[in-house]
């Protein structure tokens, strides 16, 4: 009878019915090129979803649409049941405060030291004092396996693997509810890739966050994912758990996980 009273606390209760992120019929075209052709995707709260797909299939575009960096031509995107496409910039900022993102090339600010990079969201977004922010930054750096002496270095002095770690520390610095990873292992050697995969799994688990990773690295996908979705020709053509993907008969998925040049997926020479 008083159930309506509970309505306001609904968002904090883990709720199976409202997906954390829901995309419905998302289209995005650049010039004459249809990149997304009606993407439908649901990500449950606390789950780790991995989108796989070839290079240039629109994986990054999908992420950027959810983040509001690109606006889709058509379709709806909801985060916690709120339509984020028709939001005021102010509301959008509020939503973005609960999202962390690790960019493909780490995208560290090269005018700032490592700790200032990690603490950027705390200093600018939350107006935290320098000393407190630095302490958190160093704690987060430790969490990704970097020592305090890295804190005062500059991004230009770091190796690729270290940059990814700093980027990861920056993404988790504000304890976000949602974290996006754009090709976290691309450009790293296999051992460093595995280290980053482990860090992602442990960081996500520690935060209890919802994670969306895009990659074309199957080893990484198997390690990180609760569920895997495959993006092909602008649509999600398959979605299922890690176990299911090993057994699937879908020829596109089979070709992708086998890494074979023969199959239904054709790479045109133009691309």
């Amino acid at each position: 009878m008083f159930s309506f009273l509970k309505k306001s606390t609904k968002k904090t209760i883990p709720n199976g019915h409202v997906p954390k992120i829901k995309m419905t019929g998302v289209y995005k075209t650049f010039g004459e090129k249809n990149v997304l052709n009606g993407v439908d995707l649901e990500i449950k709260k606390g789950e780790s979803l991995v989108i796989i797909g070839g290079s240039g299939t629109g994986k990054s575009v999908t992420l950027k649409c959810i983040l509001g960096l690109l606006s889709p031509d058509k379709g709806s995107i909801k985060i916690d049941g709120e339509d984020v496409l028709n939001m005021s910039p102010h509301e959008r900022e509020r939503i973005n405060k609960q999202i962390g993102m690790l960019f493909q090339g780490a995208a560290l600010f090269d005018s700032m030291s490592v700790w200032e990079n990690v603490a950027f969201g705390l200093l600018q977004g939350q107006k935290m004092r320098k000393k407190a922010a630095r302490a958190i930054a160093i704690e987060k750096l430790a969490q990704v396996g970097l020592t305090e002496d890295v804190a005062d270095m500059y991004p230009a002095d770091l190796s690729g693997g270290m940059k990814k770690r700093v980027g990861l520390a920056r993404a988790i610095a504000t304890n976000p509810e949602i974290i996006f990873f754009d090709e976290p292992t691309t450009g790293l050697d296999p051992i460093m890739s595995d280290v980053i995969n482990d860090l992602i799994v442990s960081c996500v688990k520690k935060l209890g966050a919802t994670a969306l990773t895009i990659t074309h690295d199957m080893a990484s996908a198997r390690k990180i994912a609760d569920r895997i979705a495959m993006l092909y020709e602008g649509k999600i053509i398959w979605i299922g758990t890690v176990k299911e993907i090993e057994k699937t008969t879908n020829p596109y998925v089979r070709q992708f996980i086998a890494g074979s040049a023969t199959g239904p997926i054709h790479i045109s020479a133009k691309e």
């Binding site: 983040l67 973005n96 960019f103 090339g105 995208a107 600010f109 090269d110 950027f120 969201g121 600018q124």
Partner: peptide, 17 residues
């Protein structure tokens, strides 16, 4: 350079216009 290395996108995701 900030645009092509996605630093400008990173700013937005860190709630900074």
């Amino acid at each position: 350079t900030m645009r092509v290395t996605e630093q400008i996108d990173a700013l937005t995701t860190l709630s900074t216009d």
